[in-house]
Design a protein around this nucleic acid. Structure first.
Lengths: 216, 216, 216, 216
DNA sequence: AATGAATGAGTTTTCATTCAT
DNA sequence: AATGAATGAAAACTCATTCAT
């Protein structure tokens, strides 16, 4: 990908997160980069095209970072790493989640892309959960329960930040609050073996400390 | 409220749910009702005004139905009722949740109304949870845990339907799936006394049956 | 005239002066009076009709107050009285002068009414000037000079207030400044006999005192 | 400035003068030029922007032509030149004066620009008057009298044309009548030395002749 | 590759006026 | 006399997209 094209994507992501995807005009993006609108349309055939390619980038990053887990040869407690990886991505592509429904209505093509990506994510999460159950880090769950656990986990990871931002305007705290919410959500599904793993306690301690620091 | 005004609100809700709030123009609403745009603006001073009044209606319905619980004189297991009530409302005002972030960026006044309503909702949910713990239907929880439980419950009740709609296009099932998700989410926090309450099993049975029926 | 009709005219004048004639909608007038728009249109066939009737009222007041002068049997210095009378009227119907051109373009019928009234005014002023020259209060002037003196006097009396309002936002002072401007404008045309008349000095003294009072 | 932008300004001035600034819509301007409204908004961010830039152009022209006077090294009778320069400009930007008050109510930003320009103009006129008194072309005047002379001169130069246009529909004559009004207004303030200057008589003769020519 | 002028269809909003009651 | 709901035409403004250069 040409660096100009990459720049457009990065600027778009930044502006979409700040001011909303639907409220950000193509002219606004171009102005922000100091290039012409025409040039933007040289690289992308329309605004939806930018969105679709952002989505592709998101997917790519997601699976790149998660494939590293190598479930087959790994017997470890993987949740901490998993949560961390995901949190970074979701923060970067925030608007994809918070504005998803508005975007879908406006750009019909986008829905299909989104759906296929979400199915991949679900499969990956299922694999992780099954793996963690097998190795005794999570409690036994029925098939049904697993599916809804995945659904809930996915929703929470996407929407928590948005929720806390409406409750109160504290960007720094809210990001941590969102992580803590997810953390507490998983609690009941973990076994004693998971609690004994030091990485889990580390994560909790860090999150609580950060929230406390900012609140002071 | 005049019936014309009520009609405008109802039509707006329907169109906002179907085609998105931001994609639905005031002209679209008026055309759909067979009235002139000018007439619409006779009842509402602008589009945001429609939204704010929808929000008020939503709040009113929410608290009307929930105040019936009468926590002080009630020792019963209330979750089933609570979930049912909420589910109906959230289905009707779906767009308020799925498009919330896009709406907030476009209509700044709306954010303030939304925030105040959410705080009221949070307080009510806290009251319910504390009540259910006191009467032995929920497990003991620390203050921190309660706050995040509320956050997670609220997010899930708002976003579940949206999630399932992206996974698959089955409007009828998805509404039930969303309820099931919330149902499973609450599982770990309930005591044996709650499970023993027949209303809980009824709810689960109904939901599973409905999903199964449609899926066939 | 019915009192309701009179009320509409009075309210319109007040609002037109405060917020501009073109910026004041018929609904705004009706709301301000607590009556319905329909009722307003019962008394006036359209907005222009209100304007034309305001103009008639203005003319009526103007000639009512000026006919009292009785030029034929009066040998006195009349300028002071004349200026005072006119100043009161022009303050009340301010918008008629400051917005005249915009109104004329928007309401073509209005221009004709305005023209005929202005001709009447010009005739009256000519009569006054000729009278004052005859009785030695004003210097001798050629026909041409009289016509332009009238023109200038009329323009200044109409536009002075507007000028001072743009220079600085001091409503109370500006009204006096406008009168002073007119006062100084007339200076060179007055004879010693006029200066000797005490009413003239009184007027100057009053105006200067009022300006000084407010400025402190 | 791009020629398209200049065209928009020129067309706007022409239409504003002919049909009134408030009665001329942006679409009307665009149609008149054979361009799209969107294109107009490419050059100006809104209608007020057009107005403000017209005002800037007016100011620029005004001071460009008046700075040529070079008061410091000039001992001449400057009124004739001054009046001529100003007359040309005021004719071109007529609507700025005749519709000023309506415009100010509608475009609040415009008032501030207008005020600052008027203050500059007043300063320039004060300089001119003081200069002419010093060199014996005008009679001695007190500070107060000078300020009101400026006010009156400014008002008359702006509003005379409007006045005569209401009295009678003779565009060509009216422009001259307006100049004559101003001419006669200044009469009493000029010294014999000024009258002896041939340029003054020339001006009067020309104006009278032009009026007479057209009237025949 | 890049520009930036231009378009057209759309949006929200305003308002004088009408009219059934 | 009076209401107030309803209209239609117009206003200002936006924006994704195109295209000659």
């Amino acid at each position: 990908m040409s660096s100009r094209k990459k720049d457009i994507i990065d600027t778009s992501i930044a502006l979409f997160n700040q001011e909303g995807c639907l409220s950000t005009s193509t002219r606004h993006i171009a102005d922000n980069m100091g290039i012409s609108v025409g040039n933007l349309y040289y690289y992308f055939k329309n605004k939806e095209d930018i969105l679709v390619q952002i989505l592709q980038e998101y997917t790519h990053s997601l699976f790149e970072s998660l494939h590293a887990f190598d479930f087959a040869n790994n017997r470890q407690f993987l949740f901490k790493e998993f949560l961390l990886q995901i949190q970074i991505l979701d923060a970067k592509y925030k608007f994809l989640h918070t504005e998803m429904h508005s975007i879908i209505v406006t750009f019909p093509q986008f829905k299909l892309s989104m759906r296929s990506i979400m199915n991949d994510e679900v499969n990956l999460m299922r694999k992780l959960i099954v793996h963690q159950i097998e190795h005794g880090y999570m409690v036994e769950l029925e098939k049904n329960e697993i599916e809804h656990l995945i659904a809930n986990a996915r929703i929470l990871k996407l929407s928590s930040a948005g929720y806390w931002n409406i409750i109160e305007d504290r960007p720094q705290v809210n990001s941590q609050m969102a992580s803590l919410s997810l953390f507490y959500f998983l609690h009941p599904y973990l076994t004693q073996k998971a609690y004994d793993d030091e990485s889990w306690h580390q994560l909790e301690a860090n999150l609580l400390k950060e929230v406390a620091d900012v609140k002071m």
